[in-house]
């Protein structure tokens, strides 16, 4: 089992969510993360987005943030039933992977971010993820092709 596989169980995968904005998508995914109630993950993620959007091309984005009280990195993801605009130049996103990592140690967070970026640049994987109709199918697509 790879690092990403250990951090992304089927329960953390959400398929064909319907939202109209990036903020709504991020808010939904933040609520699914098991981060303590005192930590405002949504604001941390949005502040990072304001610095420079986490759109990586090809309808994919990887919003992320560091949270002081987190002990380990958490990952959740979603495919969207219709694209939402992600940045100021109008790039649209269908696949969203959200990461929150501890402020004290960035190594796992960095590894996951790099791995996701690499995987999502693979057109075949990307298309299969977009087409997946269940979390199980999405999970299989993600990890059957993982290198």
């Amino acid at each position: 089992m790879t690092l990403l596989q250990s951090k992304l169980p089927v329960q953390s995968i959400h398929i064909h969510l319907e939202y109209d904005s990036k903020e709504e998508v991020i808010d939904r995914l933040c609520k699914t993360c098991s981060v303590g109630p005192d930590d405002d993950l949504f604001n941390a993620i949005m502040n990072r987005e304001k610095e420079i959007a986490t759109y990586i091309g090809d309808f994919c984005a990887i919003p992320h943030a560091h949270i002081a009280s987190l002990k380990e990195t958490v990952v959740t993801c979603a495919s969207l039933s219709r694209p939402v605009t992600w940045d100021d130049i109008g790039d649209e996103v269908i696949l969203v992977f959200l990461l929150a990592g501890p402020s004290a140690n960035a190594s796992v967070h960095l590894r996951l971010l790099s791995q996701l970026a690499r995987m999502l640049h693979n057109r075949e994987i990307r298309n299969r993820l977009i087409d997946a109709t269940t979390p199980q199918e999405f999970h299989s697509c993600l990890f059957s092709k993982e290198g």
């Binding site: 610095e51 420079i52 990586i56 992320h64 943030a65 560091h66 960035a106 960095l110 971010l113 970026a117």
Partner: peptide, 10 residues
């Protein structure tokens, strides 16, 4: 690499 700009603190 813009995706990693949030790690400057580290």
């Amino acid at each position: 690499i813009p995706l990693f700009s949030g790690f400057k603190e580290f």
